[in-house]
């Protein structure tokens, strides 16, 4: 619905093309040609599949402790692909299940910041004046903290848990989306078709949802994809500092901090969870870059 409205409204003001191809289709074509972006998408897909089918892929559960046996801190082998940790648990299984946590936190936190950020950004951009000043100053304040420090402080207030880490990550990313939407709203507001719509007496809410939002979807998708990458790192960082996931959840950052004591004895307990973080984040970054090039060449540096 919105997309078609968008296209119809845009057609008159853009130079007529030979064939009216949807901008989304066009973006898809250019995305497909971008090798790195495709690789990134595959990496992300791989981890999504890993998360969905974890019970079928992982040979063990997440917490099958084998304390007295000789299963503790075993090096990688055909039985334990990634070795075992100090509880005798299979690191491979835990890394596989860990993808569920990281992806879940990444998606949810970013969706949270998009919803709140967009709301604030639209209000600020559309209504302007003092509302804009107040909201923009709020964004400035949030941005004046180094983000991880702010997240630590928020978790310190709320108490350490995965849910609170997610909330903290959502909060620190709000201004990024807020500012983005605000600037889009401001620029869209200037465009002729909006002025026309206003002149015809269209309601504010209608203008917002039918014209401003569709125009902002592309940058949100791009920014959102990249933000998932950051959110995953931030969640791991909080987990690493003991402010995220609770035991026995196999959150990658927490696995690293639990295994830190075994850096000399059993480096594999540190190597694989870290590698999983790098790969997932890399996937989202590549995908985000590709989306940016395809959807919104203006944002390219």
């Amino acid at each position: 619905m919105e997309l078609s409205t968008n296209k119809e409204m845009q057609v008159p003001i853009e130079p007529a093309e030979e064939k009216a191809v949807s901008p989304w289709l066009e973006a898809w074509r250019s995305f497909r040609k971008n090798k790195l972006a495709v690789i990134g998408t595959f990496i992300v897909l791989f981890f999504v599949l890993l998360a969905i089918f974890a019970p079928y892929i992982a040979p063990e559960g997440i917490n099958e402790q084998k304390l007295t046996t000789s299963d503790r801190l075993q090096a990688p082998s055909s039985e334990y692909w990634f070795g075992t940790d100090d509880f005798g648990r299979d690191v491979f299984s835990r890394v596989v299940y860990g993808s569920r946590i990281s992806l879940w936190v990444g998606f949810l936190a970013v969706i949270g910041s998009i919803v709140i950020g967009c709301l604030l950004g639209i209000v600020a951009g559309y209504y302007g004046k003092w509302v804009d000043s107040v909201i923009s100053r709020f964004f400035d304040i949030l941005l004046a903290f180094p983000s991880i420090l702010l997240a630590i402080a928020i978790v310190a207030v709320l108490g350490p848990s995965l849910r609170n880490a997610l909330i903290a990550i959502a909060i620190i990313n709000i201004p990024n989306f807020g500012r983005l939407i605000r600037s889009r709203v401001l620029s869209v507001k200037q465009e002729e078709f909006i002025m026309a719509a206003k002149a015809v007496g269209m309601k504010n809410s209608r203008i917002l949802f039918h014209h401003v939002m569709p125009n902002s979807i592309a940058p949100i998708i791009v920014q959102g994809t990249l933000a998932i990458a950051t959110a995953i790192i931030e969640a791991a960082a909080l987990g690493f500092l003991g402010l995220g996931a609770e035991a026995p959840n196999p959150e990658w950052g927490k696995m690293l901090s639990d295994a830190r004591a075994f850096l000399t004895q059993a480096p594999w307990t540190l190597f694989f969870p870290g590698l999983a973080i790098v790969l997932t984040v890399l996937g989202f970054n590549l995908m985000g870059d590709g989306l940016r090039d395809a959807l919104d060449p203006r944002m390219k540096n």
Partner: peptide, 8 residues
């Protein structure tokens, strides 16, 4: 590099 968690 941009995808690297510093602590790791």
């Amino acid at each position: 590099g941009v995808s690297m968690p510093i602590f790791w």
